[in-house]
Computed example of a mutant assay.
Amino acid sequence: MMPLSDLDKSASDEAAKTNVRLRPRDAASLLLIDRSGKDVRILMGRRHMRHVFMPGKFVFPGGRTERADGRIAAIGELTPADERNLLKGMGTRPSIQRCRALALSAIRETYEEAGLFLGKRAPAATINYPDWAAFVERGILPDLSALRYFARATTPPGRTRRFDTRFFMAFRDAVADSLPEGTGPSLELEELCWLPFNEALKLDIPTITRAIIQEAQVVLEANPTLQPGHTVVQYAMKYGRFVREVF
């Protein structure tokens, strides 16, 4: 596992700083796992160089959670274990709708950035949110039961952008459809690729992404079918140093 001192150094070196104390925004990211071949592979994509935040870095699909995400109908809901783990870390604003919003935003961002629809074919629900219109057009409802919550990381204080990111895993089998372009409509990720874990770790990736990949390896080794109920790891800055907690 990566030494926490590497995360401390990354926190000092990688991000612009501000004197304004910003509250971290809810965000979500999805590690898609392909187990169809000899090697287990994960989906990565390179952030466009025009981005101010981590340009050119390889990351998983993900982004900021929107309030409307929690109102979207799903064909399957979060497992009780994943729901409980999400609620544990919500502080003064815990709610089932917020849990759903986090998971659904991971699915939405995977479509927007990678062109992949996680869900199942079903009679389309009426959705008055443009971000979800493509799911309605294809008759796909998102499936939260396919997601497993396994990690969380919060951007350190004093940064110009702060996110409280929840990381989910799902198998590629959960993808019901994909865009023919091989990328998402946002064009935020380029060079989408499916790579074995050891090759993904050789990419130009943020330090916290490296740590999350290693955490995913640990989960999959102990729980290769991603049954609900595994532990969740959390990275956050406390007393000036990164702390890794397990709950």
Score class of each variant (00 low, 15 high):
1 M>I: 08
2 M>V: 05
3 P>G: 02
4 L>C: 01
6 D>M: 01
6 D>L: 08
6 D>R: 01
7 L>Q: 09
12 S>Q: 13
16 A>E: 01
17 K>P: 01
20 V>M: 02
20 V>N: 05
24 P>W: 00
25 R>E: 10
26 D>E: 12
31 L>Q: 03
37 G>W: 07
37 G>L: 07
40 V>Y: 04
40 V>Q: 11
46 R>G: 06
48 H>Q: 09
50 R>T: 05
50 R>C: 06
50 R>I: 03
51 H>I: 09
51 H>V: 11
52 V>C: 06
53 F>M: 04
55 P>Q: 04
56 G>T: 03
59 V>E: 12
59 V>N: 12
59 V>S: 02
60 F>H: 00
61 P>E: 01
66 E>Y: 12
67 R>H: 08
67 R>C: 05
67 R>A: 00
68 A>K: 08
69 D>F: 02
70 G>Y: 09
71 R>T: 15
72 I>C: 11
72 I>D: 08
73 A>V: 08
73 A>C: 04
76 G>W: 11
77 E>Y: 11
79 T>G: 14
80 P>M: 12
81 A>H: 01
83 E>V: 06
86 L>M: 12
88 K>R: 11
89 G>C: 02
90 M>C: 14
94 P>V: 13
95 S>E: 07
96 I>T: 15
99 C>T: 09
102 L>S: 10
110 T>Q: 08
116 L>G: 13
119 G>V: 15
122 A>M: 10
127 I>P: 14
134 A>S: 15
134 A>G: 11
134 A>V: 15
136 V>S: 09
141 L>Y: 12
143 D>F: 11
145 S>R: 12
146 A>D: 10
147 L>T: 04
149 Y>L: 10
150 F>P: 00
153 A>W: 07
155 T>D: 15
156 P>R: 07
156 P>F: 00
157 P>E: 07
159 R>A: 04
159 R>W: 07
163 F>Q: 04
163 F>D: 10
164 D>H: 08
165 T>Y: 08
169 M>G: 11
170 A>K: 01
175 V>Q: 10
176 A>Y: 15
179 L>A: 06
184 G>D: 03
186 S>G: 08
188 E>Q: 14
192 L>A: 13
193 C>P: 04
193 C>G: 09
194 W>S: 13
194 W>E: 14
195 L>M: 15
196 P>S: 01
199 E>H: 05
203 L>C: 00
204 D>K: 15
205 I>M: 09
207 T>Y: 09
208 I>S: 00
209 T>I: 15
213 I>N: 00
215 E>Q: 09
215 E>A: 03
217 Q>V: 06
218 V>K: 09
220 L>T: 02
221 E>V: 02
224 P>Y: 05
225 T>H: 12
226 L>F: 04
229 G>P: 04
232 V>A: 00
232 V>G: 01
236 A>D: 07
236 A>R: 11
237 M>P: 00
239 Y>V: 10
240 G>C: 05
240 G>D: 05
241 R>I: 04
241 R>Y: 07
242 F>H: 14
243 V>I: 15
244 R>G: 12
246 V>R: 14
246 V>P: 03
247 F>K: 12
247 F>N: 06
247 F>T: 09
